[in-house]
Amino acid sequence: MTNGRQDRRYLWLGPGAAWLILLMLFAVSLGSAYLPLGAGNLAVNLGIAAVMLAVLAAVLMDLRNSVALVRIVAAAGLFWIIIMFALTFSDFLTRHY
């Protein structure tokens, strides 16, 4: 590109911030795993993983700037996985044998 520096910074500034946030979240998740929280451990770890996925999707995969259609496709994957979990567990959580 022609007017150099300004543009080069744009290349890595946003993703760099996201990268640092991801590393930080990862560290928190790893540390929390050693606290005796019982079932809370899994909840915290999965909660942080969900936040990490959100950061990754929004910033690095650029979902925040994408058209509605792409967001719908991404949401569809999520929605169908919820169907899968909900109905599969409708069996396993109601078994009494």
């Binding site: 080069r8 890595w12 993703p15 760099g16 690095l60």
Partner: peptide, 19 residues
Amino acid sequence: LLTSSFTMTVALRAATANV
């Protein structure tokens, strides 16, 4: 892997800007 995602994003932005 987190770092590789960062470098991949930079690569994509560089490609889009044709650097």
